[in-house]
C-alpha cells in the first residue's frame, strides 16, 4: 500500500489532528492516501499527501510555511483536499504563504481547518494568491476553531484571479470559541464569464474586533460575483463589513449582501458597501441589514413553545450555518 502521509506521525500530529476534529474536520482524512492533504503545526510540516494531478510543494519558514499548490490542467480532484493549520502553544506566530494554481479546466475543493485552541497571544497570518485558469473551478472552505481566551489575531488575506469562465467559491467560518481579532481581506479579479462567491460567517464574542473586506473586480464581460456575510455579535464585540464591487465590463453583475445581528446593547456593527460602475451595462446591487433578530422569526418559534432564548439560538444557528 502506498504510504499515506510522507512525514512523521508524531505526538504533535496526534494533537493537531485532535484540534482538527474540534474545528469540525475529519482527522481520518489526514491519514488517508485518497485525500490530498497538508498538515502544518506552527512551522512544522507534519503531513503531506499529493495526488495524481495535484502537486504540493512546501517549505518551512522561521515563522510558518510557504506552499505552492498546483492542479494540472484538466485534472478533476474528486475528493476534497484537506488543509490543516494550527498552533497549539499559547503564544506564537504562524504565517502561511500560499500560492494556488488551478490549471484550465481543472477542478479542486479545499477544506481548510485552522485551530488555535489554547491561544492567548497568537498571530495567524495567511497570505494567499490564487490563479484559477479558464473554465477551472476552485472551492475553498475554511473553518476556524478558537479556544475561550480570545487571544488570537487572524489575518486571512487573499488575492484571487479568475480567468475566462472560471469559478471560485469560498466560505470562511469562525463561529466556535472567541477569536480576538479577525481581519479578512479578499480581493477577487474576474475575467469574462468568470464567477465568484465569497461567503463569511462569523460569531463575535467578548471583545472581538472583526473586519471583513471583500472586493470584487468584475473586469470581463458577464462576470458575476456575490459577496455575502453573516455576522452575529454579542458582549462587546465589534464588526465592520466593507463589501466592494467594481463593474468594469458589459453585463457584469455583482451583489453584496450583509446581515449583522446584534445581541445585547454593547455590541457594535458597521456595514459599508461600496459599488463602482465603470461600464454602464454592468449592474451592481447591495443589501445590508443590521439590527436585532427579526421579531417575526422569534415570535413564530415562541408560538411553537420555544423560550425567547431558545428562539434566538435557533435563528442564530440557521444564519451562521
Amino acid at each position: 500500500m502506498r504510504k499515506a502521509v510522507e512525514l512523521d506521525y508524531s505526538k504533535e500530529f496526534a494533537a493537531i489532528a485532535r484540534a482538527y476534529e474540534q474545528s469540525g474536520g475529519d482527522a481520518q482524512a489526514l491519514r488517508d492516501h485518497r485525500f490530498g492533504s497538508l498538515v502544518v503545526s506552527g512551522n512544522h510540516i507534519l503531513g503531506l499527501n499529493k495526488l495524481p494531478g495535484l502537486e504540493i510543494e512546501v517549505e518551512e519558514l522561521a515563522d510558518g510555511i510557504k506552499a505552492h499548490i498546483e492542479v494540472e490542467p484538466g485534472a478533476i480532484i474528486a475528493q476534497p483536499v484537506h488543509l490543516c493549520f494550527g498552533l497549539l502553544p499559547k503564544e506564537g506566530v504562524q504565517r502561511i504563504i500560499s500560492h494556488f494554481k488551478v490549471g484550465p479546466g481543472a477542478s479542486v475543493r479545499f477544506l481548510a481547518h485552522c485551530s488555535f485552541p489554547n491561544a492567548v497571544k497568537v498571530q495567524h497570518i495567511m497570505e494567499a494568491e490564487a490563479q484559477i485558469g479558464a473554465g477551472a473551478e476552485m472551492e475553498y472552505n475554511e473553518a476556524h476553531f478558537h479556544g475561550p481566551a480570545g487571544g488570537a489575531e487572524v489575518y486571512p488575506h487573499a488575492r484571487i484571479a479568475i480567468a475566462e469562465g472560471g469559478r471560485y467559491r469560498s466560505e470562511f467560518k469562525l463561529i466556535q470559541g472567541m477569536v480576538g481579532r479577525l481581519d479578512i481581506d479578499y480581493e477577487v479579479h474576474l475575467e469574462a464569464r468568470a464567477t465568484a462567491e465569497l461567503l463569511a460567517k462569523v460569531y463575535g464574542k467578548g471583545d472581538d474586533r472583526i473586519r471583513i473586506k471583500d472586493s470584487l473586480y468584475l473586469e470581463g464581460a458577464q462576470a458575476r460575483g456575490l459577496v455575502k456575510s453573516r455576522i452575529v455579535l454579542q458582549d462587546r464585540a465589534e464588526a465592520e463589513f466593507a463589501g466592494e464591487a467594481v463593474g468594469a465590463a458589459p453585463f457584469a453583475r455583482g451583489h453584496i449582501d450583509c446581515t449583522e445581528i446584534l445581541r445585547g446593547t454593547e455590541a457594535k456593527a458597521v456595514a459599508v458597501p461600496k459599488l463602482t460602475v465603470v461600464d454602464e451595462r454592468a449592474k451592481l446591487t447591495h443589501e445590508a441589514a443590521i439590527g436585532s433578530i427579526d421579531k417575526k422569526e422569534l415570535e413564530t418559534l415562541m408560538a411553537r413553545g420555544l423560550s425567547e432564548e431558545e428562539a434566538v439560538e435557533t435563528v442564530v444557528r440557521g444564519l451562521l450555518r
Binding site: T259, A303, L319
Partner: peptide, 30 residues
C-alpha cells in the same frame, strides 16, 4: 407568547417568516 404556546395556543401567520438556514425538517421538529 411562550406561555400561551405552552398552554396550547399557536398562530400560523398570514405571511410566514423566512428563517435563513433553517431546514423544513428542523422547523417542524421544533
Amino acid at each position: 407568547v411562550t406561555e400561551r404556546a405552552r398552554l396550547g395556543i399557536t398562530l400560523a401567520w398570514q405571511q410566514p417568516a423566512s428563517f435563513e438556514g433553517l431546514t423544513i425538517k428542523e422547523y417542524l421538529e421544533i
